[in-house]
Computed example of a mutant assay.
Amino acid sequence: MLSYIYALAGQFQLTHERLSDMPAAPPVLLSDRQTEVLKWAAAGKSRGVTADIMNISEAAVDDHFRRIFKKLNCNDKVVAVLRAMSSGIIHL
């Protein structure tokens, strides 16, 4: 239930940004690995499962997310996934 609320809040934030007079954000360039981490997060995979699938450590997954959050100007996986989807970086 809480993840559903986070998703709705993230969607609200994105819609608000689109409708307000905020200037468009510059295009975000993610590495292939960062994009893959986001795709697995969008599919609902946990950090541990993502690490196993990608054959990397959980610390590496965390590092990818820190870099993703910085590039997408957020601090939450749900918002990162929503922003990546709305920017066309990932597709479901």
Rank of each mutant, 00 (worst) to 15 (best):
Y4M: 12
D63M: 10
N75A: 04
S3P: 12
R47L: 02
M54H: 15
R47E: 06
P23H: 12
G88S: 06
V61S: 10
A80Y: 03
G10M: 02
A25I: 00
F12S: 14
S87A: 08
D76Y: 01
L30F: 06
F69T: 00
A80T: 01
K70R: 08
R47I: 00
C74H: 07
A9K: 13
H91Q: 10
L92A: 09
T50Q: 06
Q34T: 02
P23G: 04
D63A: 12
A51L: 08
A9T: 07
D21K: 06
F69Q: 10
A7M: 03
K71A: 13
L72Q: 03
S57Q: 07
P23S: 06
E17A: 07
V61F: 07
Q34Y: 03
A60H: 13
M1W: 10
L19T: 00
K77F: 04
Q11P: 00
S57M: 06
A42S: 11
M22F: 12
V37H: 15
K45S: 02
F12V: 07
T50D: 03
T15N: 11
H64E: 13
V37S: 14
D62K: 11
A9V: 02
S46M: 03
A84T: 02
Q11G: 05
H16L: 09
E17S: 08
P23F: 04
V81N: 14
K70H: 13
S86C: 06
A25V: 02
V61W: 04
K71Y: 12
P23E: 11
D62Q: 09
Y4L: 15
R47M: 05
K39Y: 15
V78R: 06
D76L: 01
S3R: 15
E17M: 07
M22C: 07
A42E: 12
N75E: 10
A41W: 09
M22D: 08
G48M: 06
F12G: 13
A24W: 08
R18N: 09
A59D: 08
S46C: 03
L72P: 00
K77D: 08
S20M: 06
I90D: 11
R18D: 13
Y4G: 13
M54D: 05
L2R: 07
I56Y: 15
M1V: 07
L8E: 15
V81C: 12
F12C: 08
T35L: 12
D52E: 13
A84K: 05
G44S: 03
M22P: 00
L8C: 14
I5Q: 13
I90E: 10
Q11D: 05
A60D: 15
N55C: 11
E58K: 15
T50G: 03
D76N: 14
T50N: 05
D76E: 13
A60R: 09
L82K: 14
M1G: 14
A42D: 12
H16A: 11
Q34I: 02
A59V: 01
H91D: 07
E58V: 00
I56M: 12
